[in-house]
Amino acid sequence: MTEVVIVGGGPVGLFLAALLLQQGVGVRVLEQRVSPNTHSRAIGIHPPSMEALDAVGVAGTLASDGVQIRRGVALWAGKEFAHMRFDTIPARYPFILSVPQALTEAVLARRVRELDSDAVRAGVRAIGLRDDGGTLIADTESISGRGSFRAALVIAADGAHSTVRELLGTPTRLKTYPDAYLMGDFADNTPFGPDAALFLDAQGIVESFPLPGGTRRWVARLPAGPPRAETPALSAERLAALLRQRTGLTVDAGSNSMMSGFGVRSRGVRRMVQGRTFFIGDAAHEISPIGGQGMNLGWMDALALAPIITAFLAGVVTDREVRSYDRTRRRAAARAMRQAEINMALGRPLPPPALAVRNLTIGRLAAIPAINSGVARRFTMR
Rank of each mutant, 00 (worst) to 15 (best):
L305P: 00
T2A: 14
L19K: 15
A196K: 00
D139S: 13
G123C: 09
R244F: 00
F262P: 05
R329E: 05
N37F: 10
I43W: 06
A354Y: 12
A236M: 07
L168D: 06
G24V: 03
R41F: 11
L174Y: 10
T231S: 15
G281L: 00
P351F: 00
A74V: 05
I309L: 08
L97G: 03
D326S: 08
P94C: 06
W76H: 10
P349T: 08
L355A: 15
I371T: 06
L249N: 04
F199G: 02
A126P: 06
A283L: 06
L346S: 09
I371Q: 05
G123N: 10
L222S: 04
L115M: 07
V206F: 06
N359Q: 08
G145F: 02
A311E: 14
L129I: 11
I137V: 15
A55T: 13
N359F: 05
D139V: 05
G57V: 06
A55N: 06
I371A: 09
R320N: 10
V34C: 10
I308G: 03
M50N: 04
A82Q: 03
H46D: 01
V154G: 02
A366G: 10
I69S: 07
L303A: 10
H285G: 02
V206G: 01
Y93D: 03
N256S: 15
L360I: 13
R110A: 15
P94V: 02
I155N: 00
L313K: 11
W218Q: 01
F279I: 01
V56F: 08
G128P: 11
A241H: 01
S64K: 15
L211G: 03
R111C: 07
G275S: 09
A82M: 06
G184R: 00
I309Q: 02
I89A: 07
M300H: 12
P178K: 10
V67K: 03
E105K: 05
G44L: 09
P226N: 09
I309H: 02
A157I: 08
G184I: 00
H83S: 10
I205Y: 01
M344Y: 08
L168I: 08
P351L: 04
L30A: 10
A333S: 14
A311W: 04
K79A: 09
L305C: 01
P351R: 06
F199C: 07
P100C: 07
L153G: 01
E51D: 13
D185N: 12
A333F: 04
Q245P: 00
R320D: 14
R216N: 03
V67R: 05
Q22R: 15
I45V: 15
I371Y: 11
P194D: 15
S255R: 07
R270A: 13
Y177S: 07
Q32D: 09
T170P: 03
T104R: 04
F81V: 11
A63R: 13
L239F: 07
N256C: 15
G72T: 11
G363F: 10
P210L: 13
L14S: 01
A77M: 14
D301Y: 04
R331H: 12
T247L: 07
H46F: 04
S266L: 03
R246F: 04
L136W: 06
E31D: 11
L249A: 10
G66F: 02
L30T: 05
T318I: 01
L242A: 00
D54T: 02
L200F: 11
T88A: 11
G72D: 05
D87Y: 12
P191E: 12
A126V: 11
E237A: 13
A109S: 13
W76G: 02
G78Q: 12
G275F: 13
A334M: 12
R246W: 06
G72H: 05
V12F: 01
